[in-house]
Amino acid sequence: MEPIRKHEGIVYPLNRANVDTDQIIPKQFLKRISRKGFGQFLFYNWRYDSKGELREDFSLNKEKYQHASILVAGENFGCGSSREHAPWALQDYGFRVIIAPSYADIFYNNCTKNGIVPVQLSPSEVQQLIDNAEASDYKLTLDLESKAIYDNQGFHADFELDGYKREMLLNGWDDISVTLTHDDKIKQFEQQRELS
């Protein structure tokens, strides 16, 4: 995956809790056998009506968010299905950072395997960012090395991220190659198991 260290981008606020992966990418788009090209289907049923026309009342369709790369949303973002198509769609659409008060576990993990940084902030901090981004053109900067999110108007928040996941994201590593450095241990585990 593509490494990510520092990222500045336009913020798109999605002021909803419990956004599930069926909303992020509906099931009819899960039939492809490649990892690419899912961005066009992101939030499909919210972005398009039943005739396939853009819904003007859905915020992501607004001009000011067209080049957004940081998504800010409510509690429990990415709940539901384990489909990795959800982070593939977000990433392909252009999102590199997500900020929310909480995430579904599988989705959170899936993000970190695809170069998307899932940032967890307090509900009040998230609400503040949503309000800022709804009110004006708003940019944030992620600094993954120091695990911080800030703007140029004085907002600054630190966040937690597991050291292992952070290292993988910073370097864009594929964790299978890391695991395979422990191959002897896996073998040993299997041998002991079969003996007992």
Partner: peptide, 21 residues
């Protein structure tokens, strides 16, 4: 027993193991 994403499916196929806190 738990659900995993496709990258983790690939990881388990290749290594029969998974990184978990």
């Amino acid at each position: 027993a738990f659900g995993i994403g496709t990258s983790e499916v690939e990881h388990v196929l290749a290594t029969q193991s998974i990184w978990q806190a």
